[in-house]
């Protein structure tokens, strides 16, 4: 529960202090806008047989998966939150984050693979650094250009792919 509590707390605190800075920080893109779309309480689960629905707008920087993203959202670039735009290459090397899905309250392991091989998408810039660390912790560092793992090192946009479910002690 420790990870959940931390994420929760920060969400609420961030919403409280965004307004004074909304007009600035173009570097962060939309990260401080639209905070009101993030629900503070987990919504009741959908029917057990169906995959949990997702909540929120994947084109918004506040979308739950983007908690450790840094870059242009592929959702706005002809791809989606987990697919690359046409003609780009998904770099296999990447950084990893853990974000909480408000629909089911679970923490998911998110792989932020970059799409590479074309000039920068240039829109939907989003930088959120929950759990992010400097490059001495490469596994958690979104400052590095991870297109170093692709044929072309030219960065286009970033995805947020669900690759696992966090293991919670007591399971």
């Amino acid at each position: 529960m420790k990870i959940l509590d931390k994420l929760f707390e920060q969400s609420a605190r961030k919403i409280a202090q965004t307004d004074s800075r909304r007009s600035f920080i173009k570097w962060l893109g939309a990260s401080l806008v639209g905070a009101g779309t993030v629900p503070l309480l987990p919504v009741a689960r959908a029917a057990e047989t169906t995959r949990p629905a997702e909540h929120g707008d994947p084109a918004s920087c506040d979308y739950w998966r983007y908690c450790a993203v840094d870059g242009f959202l592929c959702e706005c670039c002809g791809g989606s939150y987990n697919t690359c735009p046409p003609g780009t290459e998904m770099s296999p090397l990447t950084w990893i984050g853990t974000c909480k899905n408000p629909i089911d309250g679970r923490n998911y392991v998110i792989s932020y693979n970059d799409c590479c091989g074309k000039t920068q998408c240039g829109t939907c810039l989003c930088q959120r650094d929950e759990g992010d660390r400097p490059i001495y912790r490469a596994d958690k560092s979104n400052d590095v250009n991870w297109c170093l793992g692709a044929e072309s090192s030219v960065y286009h946009c970033s995805t947020a792919v669900v690759v696992g479910v966090a293991f919670e002690e007591g399971q």
């Binding site: 990447t94 990893i96 392991v109 792989s111 490469a138 596994d139 696992g164 966090a166 293991f167």
Partner: peptide
């Protein structure tokens, strides 16, 4: 194994 997989994903899988 689920815990090991989780740790692999967090700390190793990126590379």
């Amino acid at each position: 194994p689920e815990r090991a997989l989780f740790h692999y994903q967090l700390f190793c899988q990126g590379c």
